[in-house]
């Protein structure tokens, strides 16, 4: 792993192009993601933030017409290589989606889903422990510990999203990708999630897509600004918000477009 100033580089994207059929969605993206930091991706909608995020755990494989070119190096390994094991990759890189999407199963089964697939627990007791720690880390344990065997779809929106976060961290991923995790939530639930993100960055590297610049400023240390499929500017959040190099960034930050 390379060093960059004080922080280790966790993910490094090199010359990434993405196509949906004939239409190019991302143009030559080069971006380093630092370990144990929160990186925010901002930009007007349709600029390719989600597309970039989905490159990092090969979720674009699910879309037939989507083609990804270029290198994405994680732990010194190019995940776009043919030899990459997508199952292992997604074990290491968790994802939380825009709309909370708990499985129509019990809370317990929602959390134990990942560990079961990856064979992480030898006994019921171990599984119970994983479920408990995951829910505790997601700050949901106190609210749901008495109803672990009720359906996950019965929770409130904010609780559901924290359940999805718990589900993602149940397999102890190194990186967590979050695609507008708060866009379907009310301000209180949003504040809870933001607090949680701050807590999680101690153990995980977090990349969060957000359309709220205030949120990016609050939770992130690094920010990348996308526009029309290009990465216009990236750097420390402070610099991007206070003193951006590019006028487009300046315009977007000050709300002149987007």
């Amino acid at each position: 792993m390379r060093k960059n100033g004080v922080n280790m580089i966790k993910i490094s994207a090199k010359n990434v192009d993405v196509f949906y059929g004939k239409k190019q969605a991302l143009f030559n993206i080069n971006l380093d993601i630092e370990e144990n930091q929160v990186t925010a991706l901002i930009g007007p909608s349709g600029c390719g933030k989600s597309t970039f995020l989905r490159c990092l755990n090969r979720m674009n494989d699910v879309i037939d017409i989507c083609k990804v070119q270029g290198e994405i190096v994680i732990n010194d390994f190019n995940i776009n290589d043919k030899g990459c094991d997508v199952v292992r990759l997604r074990e290491k890189i968790g994802m939380v989606f825009q709309k909370p999407n708990p499985f129509p199963k019990t809370l317990y089964e929602n959390i134990s889903y990942g560990p079961t697939i990856h064979g992480m627990a030898q006994s019921k007791q171990e599984m119970d422990e994983i479920v408990e720690t995951s829910l505790k880390k997601a700050a949901l344990w106190e609210e749901v510990k008495d109803r672990l065997h009720e359906p996950g779809t019965g929770l409130s929106g904010g609780q559901q999203q924290r359940l999805c976060i718990a589900r993602a961290i149940s397999v102890q991923p190194e990186v967590i990708l979050m695609d507008e995790p708060c866009s379907a939530l009310d301000p209180i639930a949003t504040a809870q999630i933001e607090e949680l993100i701050d807590e999680l960055k101690k153990e995980h590297t977090i990349i969060i897509v957000t359309h709220s610049m205030a949120q990016a400023a609050r939770v992130s240390q690094r920010t990348g600004f996308f526009h029309l499929g290009e990465l216009i500017e990236h750097g420390s959040t402070d610099k991007i918000f206070k003193n951006p190099d590019n006028t487009k960034t300046q315009d977007y930050i000050t709300g002149r477009f987007g």
Partner: peptide, 15 residues
């Protein structure tokens, strides 16, 4: 069945 459930499962590394 909503696509988001499939995405959620694939993202956990399920085949």
């Amino acid at each position: 069945v909503p696509q988001s459930l499939r995405d959620g499962s694939y993202a956990m590394g399920a085949t």
